[in-house]
Amino acid sequence: MSAADHLRFSGAAAETQRGALEAIIRAQPVLMDVLEGLRSLALPDHLLVAGAIYNEVWNYLTSRPALTGVNDIDVFYFDASDTGWDAEDRVIKALDQRFAGLPVPVQVRNQARVHLWFEQKFGSPFSPLTSSAEMLGRYASKTHAVGARLDDDGRMAIVAPFGLDDLFSFRMVPNPVLDNRVSHTAKGLRAKTIWPELTLIPWPE
């Protein structure tokens, strides 16, 4: 493997990158277990998102062990019919039971509730979301904005509002839609300690 082989999908056509991402996900048993479990639980508008996907892409392309850098598996769903904590807690407990045997925990959150707690936790206002996919567009880093879901027919839906080239190019690119400079920088610096191949693009001034 050449020094730049990890960049073999950088600059490739969008469909090629989507095919590569799907192949990487399907080759990872833990991710497929989560995707199949979410489909069986029929959570509304659910997505497997973020680190469990992009970290595994970087692990695969740099020949690192599976789940390197993956501390948990993030799952979104969107249910505006009940935005109370009790309803979300029931989903959390159901997923805890379903995925109890996995090597890392699954963390699930109802994206229809984010605006209810975001400002108190992070100090900046947050307008209500209309879907799980919309939350990906508000991530601190565009590179992290990727989600996947298994449809009933077994096909895999990939959600990537900013495309996949930054992911496959090992570029962490800021997304200044919210004041997330601290998060983008901190996550980038932490990621570079695991994947030094990454390039961290600074937050715009």
Rank of each mutant, 00 (worst) to 15 (best):
A27R: 10
G69Q: 01
T83N: 05
Q97Y: 09
Y60T: 15
S63T: 12
I25Y: 00
L41N: 00
D33K: 15
R39Q: 13
L35R: 07
G101Q: 07
I25F: 00
G37F: 15
L61S: 02
A87C: 01
N55F: 13
V34K: 08
D74K: 02
D45V: 02
A94D: 13
F99Q: 11
V91W: 01
A23E: 07
L38I: 14
V91G: 02
T62D: 09
Q107E: 14
V70M: 09
H46Q: 12
A100Q: 14
M32W: 01
A27C: 04
G51L: 03
L31T: 02
L31W: 00
L61C: 03
Q97W: 10
A94H: 11
L43N: 06
P105N: 06
P29Q: 12
V91Y: 05
R18P: 07
A94M: 14
E22K: 15
I53F: 00
I92G: 01
W85N: 14
V49M: 13
D74Q: 03
R18G: 14
E56W: 07
A50E: 12
V104A: 08
I73C: 11
Q107C: 11
L61R: 14
R109I: 12
D72I: 03
V70H: 08
D86K: 14
V34W: 03
T68D: 04
D82G: 07
Q111H: 03
T62G: 09
D89M: 06
L41W: 00
L43E: 03
L48E: 06
G69V: 03
N55P: 07
R18H: 12
